[in-house]
Amino acid sequence: MDITTESKLKPTTPIPAQAGIGLRAEHYKEVITTRPNIGWLEVHSENYFGQGGKPLYYLELARQNYPVSLHGVGLSIGSSDPLNKTHLDHLNRLIQRIEPGLVSEHLSWSSIDGKYFNDLLPLPYTEEALKHFSDRVHQVQNILQRQILIENPSSYLSYSHSTIAEWDFMNAIVERTDCGILLDVNNVYVSAINHGFDAHHYLQAIDADAVQEIHLAGFTTDTIEGQDILIDTHNKPISDEVWALYKAAIKRLGALPSLIEWDSDLPPLEFLLEEASRAQTIMDERHALVA
C-alpha cells in the first residue's frame, strides 16, 4: 500500500438529502472495508489540517465512495480578532484536496487576543455582533470562493444586553451574506430548555429556504444549584424529544442532509447506522405523505 500514489478524487459531489454519519478515526477501517449503505459522511475539518499521514489517507479513501462534508469548529468567526489566515489557508488546502459537498462553521467565537479556547463560546445577539459576524462570513466566503453554512450553537448562558432572538440573528446573517444554515435540532432543543424559549417556534421562524443541512446528536443533563441544564455532549443516543423536533423540522423543511453527530464515547458503527436509518425513515415517511 503506497500512500504517495495520487488519489482518485471525484469532482465535488453534492451532499444528498439523506442521512449521513460523522466519520471518526475509530471507524476508519470499518467504513472503508464494509462500505455501509449511507448517503454521505461528515468530518471535523481541523482533524485533517495535517499535511499527510493516516487521517488524510483514510479520508481520501472514504471520499472515493462517499460525498463528504467539512464541518469546522475552530475558525472563530465571531471573534473580534482579525480572521486567522493560517487557519483559512489550511481549510482552503483541505477543500481543494477533498472537494466537499458542504463546508460549515458555527455561530460562535473561540479566541481573543490570540488565545484560543477551542470551544464554541456564545455571542451577544446585538446589532454590533450581527454586523461583525456577517462581515466575517462575507470575508470567509470570499476567501474560500464558496458558500458556507452557519450552525446554531448550544449555549449555557445568555447576555442581558442581547436584543435579537437567535433565530432572527441567524436569518439576518443569511440575508446579509447569502450563507446557508446548518440547523442543529439538538442545539435548538438544548438552548430552548436552557434559556426557556419554545423550540417549535425556533423551527417555524428559521428561514426555511436557507437550511441545507440538519444535525442530530445526544445531550447530557447536569444539575446545577438544583436546576437542570442540558449540555451538548455528543456522547449519547438522540433523545425522544429531539427526534420529535426533527420530525417537525422535516415536516416543515422537507428531506435534507441529516447528520448523526457523535464525538466521544463512540458506540459501534452499527449503532450510528441504526440512528441514521431512523432519520432516513422519518424523511421517507414525510416524502410518502406528500407524494
Partner: peptide, 17 residues
Amino acid sequence: SYVAQDKISRDQRLFIY
C-alpha cells in the same frame, strides 16, 4: 455583570464553559 443570571448564577454558567 452582563451575563444574565436566574436560578443558576452567572459564575456557575461560566463554570460550564
